[in-house]
Design a protein around this nucleic acid. Structure first.
Lengths: 344, 344
DNA sequence: ATGAAAGCGCTAACAA
DNA sequence: TTGTTAGCGCTTTCAT
């Protein structure tokens, strides 16, 4: 239980001055090789480690970035976190992670707590509640103070900062079009994230695709919920009343539950019903059958966000040069959709 | 872009001394109400926030804990992280998360980086490589320096510290027994984590249960791998050569792949084959059919670890009072096992 | 009731 | 080549 040793103690032990020790440890040319060696050996022997708080206090850089996540119990966010962590680590940054659980209160409180010198910059995904309330002052304050901020996935035009997103409309458009191409006539849309703008954008893309190809959107085929409660029921009702041969589910819960419902009705996938999900999912690769999904490239989103933030922190980019970067998505064809047979 | 204001600036602006400001902001009785109000209002107006680095430097407490995770792309670990974060937040602690990706190098490096004053204590889960190499010096150094450490899930008897684990042998024993109770005669064991001691403990529990109830373990029914490569193949081979009516899969990948294989062979679940998985899984609740699993209570493990660590940090427990706490597990009966029909 | 000064661990400009 | 000093932002004795 030998507590950590400081530069001061080394100085005393070797009867040299504090600054000599500091310089020797930083391998300064000002110090003679002899004393340098002496000091460095002593330091190594006693496992000296510079106190990073003192360093940070000095140069006003903490080499740590704050990451604000709505949740981490969702594959997509876990992937993003992973991406952030990997580039942060690579560049010598630590990450402080906060999970808001979609709460505005916690999000605000966290940012408040951390914007006091502990952190060089933030990467955040807006919580559901924040989006609903449209209260962004905590972020605006941050920006006013000159703290770099990168928002990913769930962003808002009222916050002017760097953003890393996917093109939700386009992605949904393409997924829907894909279902049409594989011969689906009655394509349903299922969402449990109607409260999020990303959810609404995906709905938009779905509608756009239908319209574009001359299909009339049928409101009985559209389930836009704010939570997964009663979704099973609603799905059964839909399948009872309508002939559905394709489903586009835009979030984790929607995909999983739809798959269960289809199975439980004894429908064949993809012969009777095709289904496309969003990567966030608990399922995809390992579901039965493996789910055709939109891959959001969560890791890439995380990596990109971290890179952008660190460039900002290290002033490789002008502080007020804001971009909105769009990470492209990809449709991964697995076994819940038929092979494409129409050339559109 | 108005940079953060300091106590010094307030002092100058109001032409009082620095210490007066400090005291006023801390609501000291030494300061007259008049100046207190004056200072506090000025501070509020200018959004003064004490620099936490300076504070930490002073009182040698950073109110942040380091969390070392092998991965976060696994439901179990994500849950643990969630549990840790929630109690940390509640108690005013921040968490710095590091993901080792099962690498000894990264684990060691991380601990090295962080044990320099940034952190009050660690919660860690040993990486696979560390366990294999049996190199624990980084943790031992930590403990020698007097840094509190809580290890969870994957622990090692060579590290003397607080531990939070499940009883793997017992849990596996019970799961296997459950399969027997529901009438399974030929119970297979599938693992892709043979390199982890938790994996080997689970195998032990499985074997123990069989033996206890007079069944001879059949090595052709036991698949103990270190990775998921070729698992599909091996499973098919097993099903080809043996009549299997029950499978106990002890990790995420094993469960998912086994489920796929069973489906692809057209076997009925649970009529032809029963299967029990471990909660870590990508599947369970949302799989088809919903998987009967061992619930490891990841959130609870996280919460418990965090509580224990914080108690240590805040010296509510003697620093050298080490315990190994066992979080109990639970079998969640879903639809991949038959109803129990034998009273054991 | 207020302020001066030392110190947390370190760096860096300046002096010797 | 080495040491002195000031200072990062703050708290806390100890004067005044």
């Amino acid at each position: 239980m030998n507590k950590r040793i400081t530069i001061k103690q080394i100085a005393k032990a070797l009867s040299v001055s504090i600054s000599t020790v500091s310089k020797a440890l930083n391998d300064s040319y000002e110090i003679s090789d002899e004393t340098k060696v002496k000091i460095q050996e002593y330091a190594k022997l006693h496992k000296y480690k510079p106190n990073s708080l003192a360093l940070s206090l000095q140069n006003k850089k903490t080499k740590t970035i704050g990451v604000i996540m709505p949740t981490v119990l969702n594959r997509f966010f876990a992937r993003v976190l992973n991406g952030i962590e990997s580039v942060a680590a690579e560049k010598g940054y630590n990450i402080i992670t906060c999970i808001t659980n979609e709460s505005y209160e916690k999000e605000m409180h966290t940012i408040d707590m951390l914007s006091n010198g502990t952190i060089d910059g933030f990467i955040a995904c807006l919580s559901e509640e924040t989006l609903k309330l449209q209260k962004f002052d905590h972020f605006k304050n941050l920006l006013e103070e000159g703290t770099p901020l990168v928002l990913f996935d769930r962003v808002d035009k009222n916050i002017e900062c760097d953003k890393v997103v996917i093109d939700n409309v386009k992605t949904a458009y393409k997924a829907t079009r894909f279902l049409m191409k594989t011969g689906c006539k009655n394509i349903a849309f299922v969402s449990t994230i109607e409260s999020l703008n990303v959810g609404r954008f995906r709905a938009k893309g779905y509608l756009k695709a239908l319209t574009k190809y001359g299909r009339n959107p049928d409101e009985n085929l559209i389930i836009r919920e704010e939570s997964e409660d009663n979704l099973t029921e609603k799905l059964h009702k839909m399948f009872d009343s309508k002939k559905v041969d394709g489903v586009f589910t835009i979030d984790e819960a929607a995909g999983a539950i739809t798959l269960q419902v289809i199975h439980s009705r004894g429908l064949k996938i993809p012969e009777d019903v095709s289904i496309i999900g969003f990567t966030s999912g608990i399922l995809s690769k390992y579901s039965v059958p493996p789910l055709t999904t939109v891959n959001q490239f969560g890791v890439k989103i995380g990596e990109h966000s971290a890179k952008r933030l660190i460039d900002k922190i290290e002033e490789k980019i002008e502080i007020d040069d804001f971009t909105t970067d769009i990470i492209k998505t990809e449709l991964i064809e697995r076994e819940t959709t038929k092979k494409m047979f129409i050339e559109f």
